[in-house]
């Protein structure tokens, strides 16, 4: 098989973890089919690309340009499409983040090739085969790629980053100018308190209407802090104005696949499950033993969250201190 090109997402010049995950996905595919993994980073002034070999890249090209520090759809898409045509590539991998979900379809349309979005599993069986969730996570497609090149967006947390002692080489590239002045990202507004994003965190503690009041979310935040986790929320509490929409998990919010998802005072409506059923381990804390969340939970505690969460937080803290 031919090579795999991976677009590595950076923020403030640092490669994001999702980039390392995409390299892991690509490495597996390349090793199975007999090809190389090439990385492409697009960014502004400086980018830290050292050490990407250890994550699975044989070669990395860093393409920088002063105006490309933030994601700019046109030049980014043009640069990726150009790079894709320069090597002998069978697949182009992009992380299924806010950036990747905008970039991947643009690149596929430019290259006139198919797009498999939000892929959770890639394999090689005399051709590329992928699995991707559909119908709010209630069903999974297995798709075979029938064209010479495919764009694949890889869902965050679907693959764990590799650690090897491979070196890999780094080269410099350039950013292709897009059409002038069409859509320009001016800035990224940061929230007042920089928080870990639910889609990227490996542990998520999510709260629902069982918290009864916005103030009581301090309990969820405390547990999240003790675990180094992101805070998530059900739609009920987002609609009530207790939490920002950026934290909403579910069909009209974010889809998350963390290693551990702790649902606190969340009933487990289908639309909520749509966003978190692919978590590796699910814990439910709910006073109603018949709550549907227990049907998908690996571990559950039936009881009053106002008693359970403080104790759980204390014990996790104690554990971390040792």
């Amino acid at each position: 098989m031919s090579n795999i090109l991976v677009v590595l997402e950076q923020r403030d010049g640092k490669i994001k973890r999702v980039g390392h995950e995409a390299l892991a996905a690509a490495r597996g595919l390349a090793d199975a089919g007999g090809g190389e993994v090439h990385g492409l980073v697009i960014g502004g002034g400086s980018v830290e690309a050292d050490g990407l070999g250890a994550f699975g890249a044989d070669r990395v090209t860093v393409s920088t340009d002063d105006s490309s520090e933030l994601y700019q759809s046109e030049p980014y898409a043009a640069t990726v499409a150009d790079a894709a045509q320069m090597g002998d590539y069978a697949a182009l991998l992009i992380s299924a983040t806010a950036l990747g979900r905008d970039l991947a379809p643009r690149v596929a349309a430019k290259l006139d090739c198919p797009l498999a979005a939000d892929v959770t599993e890639l394999s090689y069986d005399s051709g590329i085969v992928v699995k991707r969730p559909a119908y709010s996570g209630k069903a999974t497609y297995t798709l075979r790629v029938t064209s010479p090149l495919v764009v694949i967006s890889v869902r965050p947390n679907a693959y764990a980053p590799l650690q090897s002692d491979q070196a890999g080489t780094i080269g410099e590239g350039s950013v292709t100018a897009g059409r002038e002045g069409r859509a320009v990202t001016k800035e990224i507004k940061q929230p007042e308190r920089a928080a870990l994003d639910v889609t990227e965190a490996s542990i998520v503690v999510a709260g629902g209407r069982g918290l009864k009041d916005a103030e009581h979310f301090a309990l969820v935040e405390g547990l999240a802090e003790a675990l180094g986790a992101a805070v998530g929320a059900s739609r009920a509490v987002v609609d009530a104005g207790w939490r920002p929409h950026s934290e909403q998990v579910g069909q009209t919010g974010k889809t998350v696949s963390p290693g551990l998802y702790i649902a606190v005072g969340i009933s487990g409506a289908v639309q909520h499950l749509a966003g978190m059923r692919t978590a590796k381990v699910i814990v439910a804390i709910n006073k109603d033993a018949d709550a549907p969340i227990f049907k998908v939970a690996d571990y559950g505690i039936v009881g009053d969250l106002f008693e359970i969460i403080p104790r759980l937080t204390d014990e996790i803290r104690a554990l971390k201190e040792n």
């Binding site: 559909a134 209630k138 497609y141 297995t142 798709l143 075979r144 029938t146 699910i282 505690i301 039936v302």
Partner: peptide, 23 residues
């Protein structure tokens, strides 16, 4: 450029367990 091999229900999550009640 994509052929559907299969659409399947996701593997049922293994029946979890209630580890206990209360704190």
């Amino acid at each position: 450029g994509l052929e559907i091999v299969e659409l399947a229900l996701p593997p049922e999550r293994q029946e979890g367990r209630i580890v206990g009640e209360g704190a």
